[in-house]
């Protein structure tokens, strides 16, 4: 991502006619690659039984759990992830490039490995979890808190990376100008930095939420799988695939519809 966005007059993305023609076929290939599998799923859907399938308790439980845990994970990521992005974009300290690499580690780690790592850290025999368990008896895995922790671990980097690159593309001179006018650091962050980077925050939050909604590997490894307690939609889909493929497809469609319902309006409003 370039440090500064330059806008040429008339170079608006909306005027598609001015795009080089050669790009269109490539764009079409990219779009088809995403759309065709979804269409194949729709084509296999058991439309006649769809309503009865998606109103079963196992589906409504999983959907509720997925939406709640993905949303809480996004909130947690906003509260701690935006400050982290700010530190990575604005502060200078030794080892910053190493820390930046660490932050995206959960994106490259197989989620199952991430889940195992969470277990070794926050399980009741884990590095941190053991002390907590001995003191309070609190166990993070096998509860919705475990699902939220797994979702946050896997999804937060998407927010941090998006917000960080958003911050880098914002002209730092506004902040410097505010500082010379006597604004406090907190005031600058709140009144200058945050509003400037708001689109990136919304975009990052949407990515984070979407990733959390689809999370499977870390969740099942760290939090386990129990209907109504830790079984999210992807887990329910995976298990339905073992026994009833039509139910699995119906569940996947619900997941697709719910994520589109949230992401499409966001995309129109914020992600221009």
């Amino acid at each position: 991502m370039s440090a500064r966005r330059t806008r040429r007059p008339g170079g608006n993305a909306a005027s598609g006619a001015r795009l080089p023609v050669v790009l269109w076929p490539f764009a079409a290939v990219a779009l088809l690659f995403v759309v065709v599998p979804v269409l194949a799923l729709v084509q296999r859907a058991p439309w006649s039984d769809l309503t009865s399938l998606v109103t079963e308790p196992i589906v409504t439980d999983a959907l509720r759990l997925s939406i709640v845990s993905a949303s809480v994970a996004t909130l947690v990521s906003l509260v701690v992830g935006v400050p982290l992005a700010w530190v990575l974009a604005r502060a200078t300290f030794t080892g910053r490039s190493f820390v930046r690499a660490l932050v995206i580690l959960p994106m490259v780690l197989p989620p199952v490995v991430g889940g195992a790592a969470l277990l070794f850290a926050f399980g009741r025999r884990g590095l941190v979890g053991e002390a907590v368990y001995d003191q309070t008896g609190f166990v993070l895995p096998f509860s919705i808190w475990g699902v939220i922790a797994a979702n946050t671990f896997v999804a937060m980097p998407f927010l941090v990376v998006t917000v960080e690159s958003g911050l880098r593309s914002v002209d730092a001179r506004y902040e410097e100008a505010a500082a010379t006018l006597g604004a406090s650091r907190w005031m600058i962050f709140r009144r200058i930095t945050l509003p400037n980077v708001a689109p990136a925050i919304v975009a990052g939050a949407a990515l984070c939420w979407a990733r959390a909604l689809g999370e499977f590997g870390a969740t099942v490894t760290f939090a386990g799988n129990l209907q109504g307690r830790t079984q999210t939609m992807p887990l329910a889909v995976f298990l339905a695939l073992e026994s009833n493929r039509e139910a699995a497809i119906a569940l996947s469609l619900v997941l697709i519809v719910v994520s589109l319902a949230v992401l499409v309006p966001l995309r129109d409003r914020w992600l221009r």
Partner: peptide, 20 residues
Amino acid sequence: APDTEEPDVRALLTKIDAGE
């Protein structure tokens, strides 16, 4: 009353092995 119903036996063993 199980606390988790694992999708396969290896996943179950991992959690027992870890003492969780």
